[in-house]
Design a binder for these strands. Structure first.
Length: 893
RNA sequence: AGGCUCGUAGCUCAGGGGGAGAGCGCUACCUUGACACGGUAGAGGUCGGCGGUUCGAAACCGCCCGGGCCUACCA
């Protein structure tokens, strides 16, 4: 046995054990194993990412589950990996290029992609190291990247298959365009933000000069592309106008007034300008007209006005143009007014640039049929979403889903496997690059320039990482995966799409459970963000408090369905817990050097205290196992915390001391028991605090704690998890009597401000012989824990003169304080106690007098309340009796 | 506009139809041979407000007030 330092210092320890685990291959899965499979795929962090609180929580929860299942003997696989993060990564590298005065268009596609790969090799692994630092026990031999060869093959297979089945198609329609990233985005990649803006009222004169119509808009610059004014068909104000033409200001173009039921009569003037090329609603109105309205594109992909906007505006930035349009309208006398108006703007989720709806030819996935299956899987319980409230979110989205725009006009990603024939214009979608056009035989083929949405490859993650489209042993053993652990922010992006693709291509759900955890916020409930400056860096937390304390904090905070408001003080508190465990271990190891840890442990005829703590251990193990089984991480954490600190340390270790230091005959048994408890506690705690538990466990005799057979002694990582241990009800009851007496003495000591070092003489009157027997049998404990000399115990014990008293449920504790006792103080104490009991008596009395209660409450509840009442009443009388004696002694009434 | 969620001790949060819990902070006493990152004993709460269901509500239901989030085409 080696010596442990006086306090736990995580520095050095963590790296040491992580390397030990890696070299021992404890995290490497064996697909051939017959044990029950438990598999998780990690939500792949972006290759550009670095560890933030969200990752830390997500990874910690997964690691707790994975380590727990591994210790329970499951065949565990946790697949790690990264996402190529198309737009985000391209942005990072482009920024780097621009600082060097370079530009991707100038470099060309191949050189640019080579550059991104180089960037990935240099910087892309950062988050992986950080996950390891957190203790993540992933099978790193199976690490994947969404752009590696195997996954790329899966992507092509899925794309081509969906195309062949008519579930992928190409269409020209309005899309969300980011003028900065220069690409189309799907609907969910657009964020909405409320903003104080202006509603501009503009007058459109009628062509025939008979009047005018006023429209209201939040985007005046788009008027240059108007092709109609729409009013509600039943709006009497505008009845006569429908079918007439107005003259579009600043352009002179003649455009019709049309009717459409989507126009809100109450909003603005009730007349809407229609710009089909730059607004989704307007596009819809245009399509409904017979014949459909024209579309005039006045804003280009770069966010600048096109030639069609007119010579005066062409080339202007869209916001610059807005100012120009307003001032021109004012000059023309057509600007009616501008009023304040809150509007919601759409912005790119990657760069926050305001989205410009543009018409373009893009690839789409027809999601309807896929979504229906994915909804069915949840409704039928083949996928369980936990907590269940998230099911609503999932259903609501799935049932109103639009087709998924999957093409992106960037270079970093999976290039779309479609070729266009220069001869006949045919489209060829193929797994391999075709040599010639199948239709006309032409060889002038050009591959589609676009790449796929990053989330397209993420959607395949649960089976592509297991080797699909090959038929692998991994797929057979580990698919469907057991649980997906993720945040609610990517239910649409990821969870829903994995469900769709898994069911489509594997004919089975990708995961049985989806555990949705909270978002980590700061202590005041704000979302953490760089711009708010309220970001807490997990790496700094680990550095300051150690990984184990940090992980334990996250687990303790992870209550279902609630956001995590992270507070550093809690981490500090749990660092104290780590240290407590460390010191308890130090004590146990220092006092048990001469005994062996048994393979199996039989409490046999151990003393009450030992049986009691073993019983508490059993209850705790049950609690932890069932809490983890229900994803109640916080319950699991608090249960094991409570046991370790307040039962093992506060009571049992203190009880063990007189035995260890004395010459009592039970010494050996207590030593063995302590060692066994330490071993179990460490194993119980290991999933939460992997490092410190391994460090202590390895320090235990020969590093072979609870070795068992095979390799189990090598590391706590693969030791057995405590489960189904024996309990001892009688010991728990009897221990309750001892604790009651002890706290009685302590309360007197505390409330009368008697020094802890002062040894008190104590008399205990018990209400029954049996209680007396139990206490007498445990005199050593009583004496040590109460720091007292126990003079007498029994039913017949009389209160000595000038004694302080604690009236307990099963006993009365007397502490004679000849000369020391301040009678008034003592009477105040008893009065306080009496008041408390009196409250209970009154409450219970009222309840028991209530006939409805007696009649309608369950029998056992009534019985219990009656017992409680009797008990309180008796106790009250005993308190009063003691007070009376005190009054007599003090000579006052 | 709809939907979800939260309001419990000074702070951060658990709990959840039969007399309010934790951590930190606070008060008093204590360096007792694991630990002052410690020990013992305390103080502290009309469980957001109002109604309802119930023998019984902090918990279940409705409304209101106050936070937060998500979805949606009101230009």
């Amino acid at each position: 046995m080696s010596e442990l330092e006086k306090s736990y210092n995580p520095k050095g320890v963590e790296l040491k054990w992580y390397e030990y685990w890696m070299s021992g291959n404890y995290f490497v899965a064996d697909p051939g194993s017959k044990a029950e499979a438990f598999s998780i795929v990690i939500p792949p962090p972006n290759v550009t990412g670095s560890l933030h609180m969200g990752h830390a929580l997500n990874t910690t929860l997964q690691d707790i589950l994975v380590r727990w299942k591994r210790m329970k003997g499951c065949n565990v696989l946790w697949i790690p990996g990264m996402d190529h993060a198309g737009i985000a990564t391209q942005n990072v590298v482009e920024r780097q290029l621009s600082s060097e005065g370079l530009d991707r268009h100038w470099m060309g596609r191949d050189a640019f992609i080579a550059r991104v790969w180089k960037w990935k090799e240099e910087y892309g692994g950062r988050i992986i190291h950080q996950l390891k630092r957190l203790g993540a026990s992933c099978d790193w031999s199976r690490e994947r990247f969404t752009l590696d060869n195997g996954l790329s093959k899966a992507v092509i297979e899925v794309f081509v298959t969906l195309y062949e089945q008519g579930l992928i198609y190409r269409d020209n329609r309005l899309i969300n365009w980011c003028p900065r990233c220069h690409t189309a985005l799907s609907d969910i990649e657009v964020e909405h933000e409320e903003l104080e803006g202006k509603l501009t009222h503009i007058m459109y004169p009628l062509e025939d000069g008979s009047g005018s119509v006023v429209v209201a808009t939040t985007r005046p610059e788009t008027m240059l592309g108007d092709t109609a004014v729409a009013v509600h068909p039943d709006d009497e104000r505008y009845e006569d106008l429908i079918g007439k033409k107005v003259s579009l200001p600043l352009t002179g173009r003649k455009i019709p007034v049309v009717a459409d039921a989507a126009v809100e009569r109450e909003f603005g003037t009730g007349a809407v300008k229609v710009t089909p090329a730059h607004d989704f609603n307007d596009e819809a109105i245009a399509k409904r007209q017979e014949p459909p309205l024209d579309s005039v594109t006045v804003i280009g992909p770069d966010g600048r006005m096109t030639a069609e906007a007119g010579a005066r505006y062409a080339g202007m930035d869209r916001y610059e143009c807005r100012k120009a349009v307003i001032s021109d309208l004012k000059e023309a006398g057509l600007l009616v007014k501008q009023e304040k108006h809150t509007l919601s703007i759409s912005q790119c989720y990657r760069c926050k640039t305001v989205i410009e709806p543009l018409s373009a030819l893009q690839w789409y996935v027809k999601v309807g049929p896929l979504a229906r299956e994915a909804v069915k899987a949840v409704r039928e319980g083949r996928i369980r979403i936990i907590p269940r409230t998230w099911e609503n979110t999932y259903f609501a989205w799935m049932e109103n889903i639009n087709d998924w725009c999957i093409s992106r006009q960037i270079w970093w990603g999976h290039r779309i496997p479609a070729w266009y024939c220069g001869g006949c214009g045919d489209v060829i979608v193929s797994r391999e690059a075709p040599a010639k056009c199948g239709k006309c035989g032409g060889t002038a083929l050009r591959q589609d320039e676009d790449v796929l949405d990053t989330w397209f490859s993420s959607a395949l993650w649960p089976f592509s990482t297991l080797g699909w489209p090959e038929s692998t042993e991994e797929l057979r053993t580990y698919y469907p995966t057991s649980v997906l652990v993720t945040g609610f922010d990517i239910i649409f992006f990821w969870v829903a799409r994995m469900a769709m693709m898994g069911i489509k291509f594997m004919k089975d759900v990708p995961f049985s459970d989806v555990y949705i955890h909270a978002l980590v916020r700061d202590a005041s409930g704000q979302k953490m963000s760089k711009s708010k400056g309220n970001v807490i860096d997990p790496l700094i937390m680990m550095e300051k408090y150690g990984t184990d304390a940090f992980r334990f904090t996250l687990a303790a905070f992870a209550a279902q369905g609630r956001d995590v408001r992270f507070s550093e003080e809690r981490v500090e508190g749990y660092r104290h817990f780590v240290n407590k465990l460390w010191n308890a271990s130090r004590f146990i190891l220092a006092n048990t050097g001469d005994v062996e840890l048994p393979q199996t442990f039989d409490a046999g005829d151990l003393d009450i205290g030992s049986k009691w703590i073993l019983s508490r251990l059993a209850v705790t193990a049950d609690d932890v196992n069932s809490a983890l089984g229900d994803y109640r991480f916080n319950d699991a954490a608090s249960s094991v915390y409570q046991f370790t600190w307040h039962e093992l340390c506060d009571w049992y270790i203190e009880m063990a001391k007189p035995v260890l230091y004395g010459e009592s005959f039970g010494k050996e048994a207590v030593k063995v028991c302590l060692l066994y408890l330490l071993d179990c506690t460490l194993r119980l705690l290991h999933p939460f605090m992997p490092y410190v538990t391994e460090e202590i466990w390895q320090t235990m005799k020969g590093g072979k704690a609870a070795a068992g057979d095979g390799r189990k002694g090598e590391s706590i990582v693969i030791a057995d998890y405590p489960l189904s241990l024996p309990g001892y009800d009688e010991a728990e009851t009897e221990m309750g009597l001892i604790m009651e007496a002890v706290t009685g003495v302590r309360t007197i000591r505390g409330e009368l401000n008697l020094a802890p070092s002062l040894e008190l003489s104590v008399y205990i009157k018990t209400l029954s012989e049996k209680t007396g027997d139990v206490l007498r049998k445990n005199l050593t404990y009583l004496a040590k824990l109460a720091k007292a000399r126990i003079i007498e115990i029994g039913v017949e014990v009389k209160k000595p003169r000038g004694a302080a008293v604690a009236v307990r449920t099963f006993s009365e504790v007397y502490v004679p304080l000849e000369g020391l006792l301040n009678i008034e103080m003592e009477i105040d104490r008893l009065k306080k106690e009496e008041a408390k009991v009196e409250q209970s008596v009154a409450f219970l009395n009222k309840k028991l007098l209530n006939e409805d209660f007696l009649k309608r409450a369950p029998k056992d509840v009534v019985l219990k309340e009656r017992e409680k009442y009797e008990e309180c009443l008796k106790r009250k009388e005993r308190i009063q009796e003691n007070m009376r004696k005190l009054h007599e002694a003090g000579g006052r009434k």
